[in-house]
Structure formats: C-alpha cells, structure tokens
Amino acid sequence: MSLLSLEHLTKRFPEGRGHTTVLEDLSLQVDAGDFVGIWGMRRSGKTTLLRVAAGRELPDAGSVWFDGHEMTSMSPDRRAALQRRNGIGLLSSDWRPERNNPAVEHVALPLLSDGMSLHEARHPAWKALERVGAAQWAHVPAARLSQSERIRVALAQILVHEPRVLLVDEPAVLPRPSDGAELFDLLRSLGGSSGLAVVIASEDIAPIRKARRLMSLGSGKLRPSDERGTLVPFPERTAARKRSQP
C-alpha cells in the first residue's frame, strides 16, 4: 500500500445559490521517496487537492489514507497529532510570519504543541533551518526576510515535524525564476536523502518540469503526462489553441 493514498475524492464548494465541483472522483498514490509535480491553471483545484491530502479539509466523498490509517475518519485532535510527528506537511505560499520574531522562533513554535518548551524547541528548530540552508537567518526578524528566504523558513517550520510526505503549494510565487529552481533543487535533495515524498503543485510549468512524475489537474481530474513528458490538453482549451496557431 502506498504511503499516501487519495481514493475517489470529490470536493464541492458552495457558491452563490449553487456549488462548484473542484475535485471529482480523483485518485492519487504517493510512495515514500516519490517526487510528483502537479500542473494546473489558477482555480483548477490544486490548493484544494493538497489541503484535502494534508487533512486540512474533508472531502465530500472518497477517502485519504496515510500509512495505513484513514485520515478522513479521524478526530481533529488525532489528525493534529499525526501532523505533529512523522506525518504530512503542507507548505503553502500564503504563510505570513509575525513581523518581529526571529526565524528560529517561528520554526520552534510548532514544537510547543508536542509538549516542548520554547527553550527546548530551539535546538531542533536550528537543525531544520540548517537543513534548508537558512541557518544564517535564524535570528533575523521575519519582517526583514525576503520572500524566498521566508519560503525557506516556512519549509523549515514544516520539516521540524519530520514529516514523511511534503506537499508544496505554488512555489511559483517566488519573485525570481532562479529562486524557484533553487527551491526545486532543495526539495529534490530533501526527498532523495530521507525517503521523504514530495508533491509540488504549480500553475507555472517551469519549476516542476523535472519532477519524476508530472501530472495535470483540470475539471476536477488528474491526468498523467504522456511518454514524451508533455501534458495532455483539456478539451475546453482546444478552441483557444487553434486560434492562436496561425
């Protein structure tokens, strides 16, 4: 059985008087050490997919299994406990750190939930910062970090829990493409060394092109890339394609 397994997920959101279906009967298997890239347009459901996979949100139908346990039927406290140690980490681009606190405290903070004091938590926090190459900013207040530096601190904040699956949402918000490439390399090295499974979702294809598995998300479904590594276009986009090719 896979480490992380999404089975027949369906997720709808209310909208106005009706609702929209964001994920429809979607399944995905992720094994230890896997490296998956998911490309999707804006509002194609990438974020929802990762959030459901991380247990942040419950699907309307289907189930999420992690290491043999069905996450979708756990109590919120159990799910939180699973997240605290060797579970699933979700790196999202909307992380907004508190301005005045140094990076190391941001990374140490989550460990308080595991019964540590802030003092004790500093050590593992430091190690996590070293792992992502951010130790030199450990004492810099978050307000003075650049966007790409913040992303690394956010990553350390997740790695400090020593997760077995890392879900990454939108690395493409980085201000420079080179940062995106660096981050991608970092994520790959993290995955390679420890058996950590990594899933990256992005609306820009550049950062995820070199993923071991590349998939595209649209109309609530995932499609694998074909043998040549190109993505299969969705039907509703074909009209646009034809027109733009003179």
Partner: peptide, 24 residues
C-alpha cells in the same frame, strides 16, 4: 514531571503569549 495542559507545557503557554505580545 513538568506541568502540562492538554500536552502543552505551562511555560509554553506563557511563551506563546509573549510571542503574541511582541507582535500585537
């Protein structure tokens, strides 16, 4: 044994409030 509340160290609760104070 150090006092905990729901698995949270009491000192951690104080630290969390200091954290909040330093930002808000």
């Amino acid at each position: 044994p150090r006092p905990t509340i729901l698995g949270l160290r009491v000192s951690a609760l104080v630290d969390l409030y200091r954290w909040r104070l330093s930002n808000h």
